[in-house]
Design a protein around this nucleic acid. Structure first.
Lengths: 306, 306
DNA sequence: AAATTCTTGCAAAATCTATCAAAATCTACC
DNA sequence: GGTAGATTTTGATAGATTTTGCAAGAATTT
């Protein structure tokens, strides 16, 4: 059987069963486990499925909830740390605007125990608080942007232009010393309305957003009061932000030292506590075979804030 | 089984039962307690559920379990039948307002396969369509009424006053020949706005609502084009409605005749389908009586439309 | 105080990555 | 048309890594 045919059959089979083990797939296409492994690596690079331990799964099971509230979230540990740190900035009884986007969602998860008024255009955030008695949730109107559950459009902008809040918890696609950028004009309008509506503006960025520039300018640094990020943020940019009057809160590193692109020479083999094996970040499987596509667009080219 | 598949099955199982013990989950996915523990920790970090002592529970009961969920399984079969019947009245490409409330929700579930524009103030309905590519969903703004996920307040009323739709699918607390009643002033305002916004008004009532009168008047019969109900509806009332120009569609009885002791010989021919629909221009519904009641906040005084 | 339940550490099992040699396929040249 | 050599694909294997189940001690609920 040709490799093309094999891969196609793998995809089709997965489409039917949603999950499959390597052994199952190998039997299905009558090839060895190794071969199936390689096929899966290629197919994943193209973006049609996702490998898991011991097998693979389709990327968009039609039954799944909002894309980001499930396991696809990138930088999960970092975002959790950011969420916790950012939540500590919020006082009880404040009114809080919460942006859509994964990072802001993780902040919201840490606010459940407080007594607050929440204003949001994110359906997942709204769901999160829907049954919390102590929190009043105002949902802006709007049209649902599929799969992300963001409410967009004039109704949303209008809603924010009519209210006022103590704090806005925002996220974005990238931050540089020139300001914040995000990827979609629809979002920009709404986010600018959020910023105008809030007395204090807090932006949450995981460290990969630093130095990145997305398509559309959202605001410049003067609009921002505080930035919350994780320990991986480049220190020169952090310093630059502080020099320009932006308060920067760096969340402590999560438990496992994941993805520390910084040098970390560690010449002395200092035994890290009593830990047996030191998990290291494995490199992105950039080694894919003959594929000539632009690499960066794998798996995550949706609206770009995660 | 792969860990991803296992986690997904845990989530699905939890969605069904709302709570589950570790042992129960371990049996369900055929893994050890330890493994389930680890899975739960991960799933909680992602945000889809919450651990408890000895087990886990869902955070956001998906779709129909918004609180009216686990409620009366009795009427469920009837509501399903009503949902199906009512959905058959909807044409592709129409714009449809969907009321909050269990009955309307069940109608919504039967609309997923159509290509429509949906306007709703119900969070459960919004969630239902959130990832449906073929359906555009407009969510009105508003404050979340806890446990039911209805968006209430001026934002919601305003949103409906600015739009127009082909059909409104409504539910209410009770229907008599004097009109429709519902239990809460906040709802009344919004529902009246819905009725004004729609060209055709369809009310869905399970048969227990017939002859019942709730606290507040919502509208009179002249505002209604069609009523959809189940086979248990009292025939005199059904006849009365028809005499007053309301089209009545009776959904066939569900498979197993629950709680319908009467064999219902049905000697009266009255083929409901054959009735000619006479849409009339209706006056703007008179302002409803202002309810000054303080609806006892007991756990059971939920908004009353089921 | 008793009984669960949770956390932590650890070793066994399963799986992944990287590598290599054999098989299959392609290319160039006669 | 056919064949030797180069290239790609395949299957297998070894070592690294992750996952899993278990058990002891800590923390909790009753």
């Amino acid at each position: 059987m040709q490799s093309e045919e094999r891969q196609k059959r793998i995809e089709e089979y997965l489409q039917k069963v949603e999950f499959a083990s390597l052994e199952e797939l190998a039997r299905q296409v009558d090839a060895s486990i190794s071969t199936v492994r390689r096929d899966l690596t290629q197919l994943e690079a193209v973006g049609n499925l996702r490998r898991t331990h011991g097998g693979a799964r389709v990327i968009v099971p039609k039954s799944d909830e909002f894309a980001f509230s499930s396991r696809d979230t990138l930088q999960l540990a970092e975002k959790e740390a950011i969420g916790q740190a950012c939540a500590s900035l919020i006082q009880p009884s404040q009114s809080v605007i919460i942006d859509a986007g994964t990072t802001a969602f993780h902040v919201a998860r840490h606010l459940e125990s407080l007594t607050l008024q929440i204003i949001t255009n994110s359906l997942p955030v709204a769901n999160l608080f829907a049954s919390a008695q102590r929190i009043e949730v105002v949902v802006t109107g709007g049209v649902i942007y599929p799969r992300l559950g963001v409410l967009v459009g004039p109704l949303a902008v209008e809603a924010f232009s009519k209210i006022h809040a103590d704090v806005a918890i925002m996220s974005g696609g990238g931050i540089t010393l020139e300001g914040v950028t995000n990827s979609h004009a629809l979002l920009i309008d709404i986010q600018q309305a959020m910023i105008r509506a809030a007395s204090k503006v807090i932006f949450c960025f995981d460290s990969t957003k630093f130095g990145r520039r997305s398509v559309a300018q959202l605001c410049d640094l003067s609009s921002i009061d505080t930035v919350v990020t994780d320990a991986g943020a480049p220190s020169d940019l952090v310093r630059g932000l502080r020099e320009r009057g932006v308060e920067v809160l760096v969340a402590p590193a999560p438990f496992q030292p994941v993805s520390t692109p910084a040098p970390v020479p560690a010449p002395s083999p200092a035994p890290p506590k009593a830990i047996k094996h030191i998990p290291r970040r494995r490199p992105v499987p950039a080694k894919a075979a003959v594929i000539t596509e632009s690499p960066s667009e794998t798996s995550d080219s949706r609206m770009g804030w995660d």
